[in-house]
Computed example of a mutant assay.
Amino acid sequence: MTSLPPLRHPCPAGACDCRREQLLEAPGADTRILLLTRQEEQRLLERLENLQSLEDLQRMQQRMFEQLGIGLHIAPGHGEVRSMRGIGFRFDEQPGLCRKTRQAIPAAIRRALEKRPEIAWRLLDAHDLFRDD
């Protein structure tokens, strides 16, 4: 007998816009995001807070997409980047991704960028913000 992996518990009614129930009811829907239990989310956030390089960040983005279906795009904001708040985070539309998780992941990455500003500089450089004209 095979046991199913634990799924994330539902958010309190009216507290989230994750559309978890619609995801579970849809036939053939990608339910990988529901494998991100609160305990696993804490492990993910801890890992994101301890990033060592831009390559490490990009590898984590790829793994989040492959394992959970989370599409996360990180780029400098439209205005001037004076702090880590100027770096923008955008998630692909994904039913089942909790509102709190959508807030916690960028916060963890910002903490990592504050600890290691060289990652932020490399991110900015990757978007040609430090190019010489």
Rank of each mutant, 00 (worst) to 15 (best):
A104V: 03
T2R: 15
D56V: 09
R59A: 13
L68Y: 15
L24P: 08
R99E: 10
E55D: 13
R43H: 14
A108R: 00
C16P: 03
P117A: 04
R110H: 06
R131W: 00
Q52P: 00
D92C: 05
R110C: 03
R19M: 09
W121S: 03
E49Q: 15
E93Q: 14
P27T: 09
S3H: 14
T31L: 11
M84I: 10
M1A: 10
I33Y: 03
A107M: 05
F65R: 09
S53V: 07
E118V: 02
M84P: 05
D17V: 00
M1W: 06
E41Y: 01
Q67M: 07
Q58T: 07
I105T: 01
A13E: 14
I33C: 06
P27L: 02
L113F: 07
R82G: 12
L129D: 00
C98A: 13
R38P: 05
I105V: 15
A75W: 03
F91Y: 13
R102A: 07
L54S: 12
R19V: 06
P76L: 09
R47D: 14
R43Q: 12
L129H: 10
G86L: 04
A126I: 01
L35E: 06
R131E: 02
C16I: 11
P27G: 00
R85W: 04
Q103Y: 03
L23D: 08
M60S: 13
C16W: 02
R99G: 02
P5L: 10
D30E: 10
E21P: 01
P76Q: 07
V81A: 13
T37Y: 09
L23G: 09
F91R: 03
T2P: 10
T101P: 06
H127W: 11
I119V: 04
F91P: 09
R110T: 07
